[in-house]
């Protein structure tokens, strides 16, 4: 088994654990929080809902940390400051599903949306709308939540009742799994364009990398053989190769470690210290003769 497959397998195990921890019919984390630690909240994906916790905070009700959603949101955000968007890269099953599924679709059928539409303004714009809505007394439409849909599909599949999926759910599924999923390069279009929890983590990670004691992606330029494999394998296109320039966009990075596992020379690392790849003018020249055409 080569490095790419090994890393995918290792990550896949993490996503399955994430599914067991957060989604009904398991929801083990929420069951632990409600049953053992006596927090209040639901024992399905809504018990980990980021919107509910942040909605309460923004609308002036305060962040009720003593709920399952409050504690999980708080934990995800704190981890993002110190270790990057680990939730997205290591546990998020809803993000991983289209990514893994996209690997069976030929590359020529996939669109690199970021060539046409920059992800950062869309992502942060969506986040601003998402955060402003509760402050204006408007509820964010839950019908477009891919986490909720993921759970509905699983529960509906178990009970053979998918009729509960309404038009909004079908539309969300279409965009999440197909348009921005398997037919997008990397398969993580929904994560890079629309996911609010990913956007908040990215902002916190961007701030976090300025601190010397936080973990960040590092590149050893001297040992890099410029093979371009990291760019080819990056599911969110955070590492791209354009005009013989290897670029790293920290705003798209989900700390999945696919690049670290894929790199044949192990020149990409994730560690502490002042130096970071993102702080290195976001780019690295690639050897013309050895670069991989993507």
């Amino acid at each position: 088994m080569n490095n790419v497959k090994k890393t995918l397998l290792k990550r896949g195990i993490g996503y399955i654990i994430g599914f067991g921890l957060l989604y009904a019919p398991f929801g083990l984390l929420q069951i632990f929080l409600t049953g053992v630690l006596k927090f209040t909240g639901r024992e399905d994906i809504h018990g980990a809902c980021f919107r509910m916790a942040l909605g309460n905070l923004i609308s002036g009700k305060g962040l009720n940390i003593l709920t399952t959603s409050g504690i999980i949101t708080f934990a995800i955000l704190i981890v993002a400051v110190f270790f990057g968007p680990q939730f997205c890269g290591k546990l998020c099953f809803a993000g991983a599903l289209p990514e893994y599924a996209s690997r069976i679709v030929p590359d020529k059928l996939k669109i690199d949306w970021q060539k046409y539409i920059p992800s950062a303004p869309v992502r942060y714009g969506a986040l601003i709308g998402f955060l402003t809505a509760p402050a204006l007394g408007i509820s964010v439409v839950c019908a477009y939540c891919n986490y909720s849909l993921m759970e509905k599909i699983v529960l509906g599949g178990i009970s053979w009742n998918l009729a509960t999926l309404g038009s909004a759910a079908i539309l969300t599924g279409f965009v999440w799994l197909f348009v921005l999923g398997i037919f997008t390069k990397g398969g993580r279009g929904y994560c890079t364009y629309l996911c609010p929890i990913g956007a908040v983590q990215s902002i916190l990670h961007r701030v976090g990398i300025l601190l010397p004691f936080t973990y960040k992606l590092k590149l050893n330029k001297e040992s890099c053989i410029s093979c371009g494999l990291c760019a080819k394998e990056c599911p969110t296109r955070a590492i791209t190769l354009k005009d013989n320039l290897l670029k790293y966009n920290v705003h798209n990075c989900i700390a999945c470690s696919q690049c670290i596992g894929t790199c044949p020379k192990k020149v990409i690392t994730f560690g502490r210290g002042k130096d970071s790849w993102a702080g290195d003018k976001n780019e690295q020249y690639v050897n013309d003769t050895e670069g991989v055409a993507l």
Binding site: V122, G129, F130, Y144
Partner: peptide, 16 residues
């Protein structure tokens, strides 16, 4: 782009 998406998200949320 950012403002447009934020506005669209707000309008979409207003439908709720």
């Amino acid at each position: 782009i950012g403002t447009g998406v934020a506005g669209f998200n707000l309008l979409n949320s207003a439908i709720s």
